[in-house]
């Protein structure tokens, strides 16, 4: 039973550790850099920032 417990809790520790390392790595390698640019990826030349893209249909 103790062996199982060590395995489980050791595993949990290792996993959370590696998740943390992955997080740090993504910070270091630029995923978190230039957040402004990443936020702008959903806009294009013909749908630029400042242009609303939805409205109630108008009566014609």
């Amino acid at each position: 039973m103790t062996a199982e417990l060590i395995l489980i809790f050791g595993g949990m520790l290792a996993l959370s550790g590696s998740a943390f390392v992955a997080f740090c790595w993504s910070v270091c390698n630029g995923q978190m850099a230039r957040p402004r640019e990443a936020a702008l990826t959903i806009f294009d030349d013909d749908e630029p920032v400042g242009l609303p893209t939805d409205r109630f249909p108008s009566r014609k």
């Binding site: 402004r36 936020a39 806009f43």
Partner: peptide, 19 residues
């Protein structure tokens, strides 16, 4: 996270916070 900025035409306030 897509609809609000896209419809308004305003980028999301803080990309850091979202991550």
């Amino acid at each position: 996270f897509y609809m609000i900025p896209k419809v308004l035409g305003r980028p999301i306030h803080s990309y850091y916070l979202s991550l």
